[in-house]
Amino acid sequence: MPPLEPPTDPAAQLQWLVDRAAISDLLVDFARALDDQDWNAYAANYAEDGVLDIAPTISHRGRSGLADFVAASLGRYAGTHHLSSNHAITIDGDRATARSYLLAAHVFDAEQPHRHADGAGWYLCRLRRTVQGWRFTHVTLEIRYVAGEPLLH
């Protein structure tokens, strides 16, 4: 389905721009929270019924427990570095979709930062406007390649 065209009415255009900026900020905060190991802030980016799918087999449903779920995986690394770019956002009222590119490095040991596992792909996201602002209702991570050392499982 092609993306919806931006509105032509000036007031609607302004809202469209504000919504796009808010969604892009959410995608950036999503990465920041992972790299800061701020698991609660990461989970707060999701709606209460939000879903995280790491294709093809890893999944978590609901905001409850999401912080612990992500911490159990990424908390094993000394640090991570997630880059989020190419935010392709489509807004349809109080619903939206976004596709953002991902490049991530996972450092095993802070004393040996040359040892890392890298991955790249994109996040396919569905979002909903809530009273707290835009929140993810479904995030699917599609990994396109991995490099360096193997990721921890």
Rank of each mutant, 00 (worst) to 15 (best):
T130W: 00
A12L: 08
D19K: 01
P10Y: 02
I91V: 10
D19Y: 01
H138W: 06
D35F: 07
L151N: 10
W134H: 00
S100G: 09
R20V: 07
Q112D: 07
F108S: 02
D35P: 05
R76A: 10
W134M: 00
A33H: 15
A12R: 14
L66T: 01
H106R: 06
A110Y: 08
E142Y: 11
G93T: 01
G50L: 07
L4Y: 14
Y42Q: 04
F136D: 01
P56V: 05
A104D: 10
L152Q: 14
H114Y: 10
A44Q: 10
H138T: 05
A147S: 11
D49C: 02
P2H: 14
F108A: 03
P7G: 03
H106Q: 08
A31N: 13
R126G: 09
I58F: 14
P10L: 02
S84H: 06
P6G: 10
R61M: 12
L141Y: 14
H153N: 15
D29I: 02
L4Q: 11
A71G: 07
D25Y: 00
Q13I: 11
R144D: 06
F30Q: 05
R128S: 05
A21Y: 05
L17D: 14
R99H: 15
Y123N: 14
H153I: 09
L14T: 05
Y77W: 02
S64Y: 15
A110G: 11
A117W: 13
H116D: 04
A88E: 15
R144L: 12
D53M: 09
E111Y: 01
T140Q: 10
P150V: 03
L102D: 01
A105T: 07
E5M: 11
R20M: 08
L74I: 08
T90A: 06
P2C: 11
Y123E: 15
V18L: 03
H116G: 05
Y123P: 14
S59V: 12
I89L: 04
W134R: 00
L141G: 09
V107D: 12
A147E: 14
G75V: 01
N86T: 13
V51H: 07
L66S: 03
D109M: 00
E149M: 12
L141M: 11
A88P: 10
D9W: 06
T90C: 04
P10I: 01
R76H: 07
W16I: 02
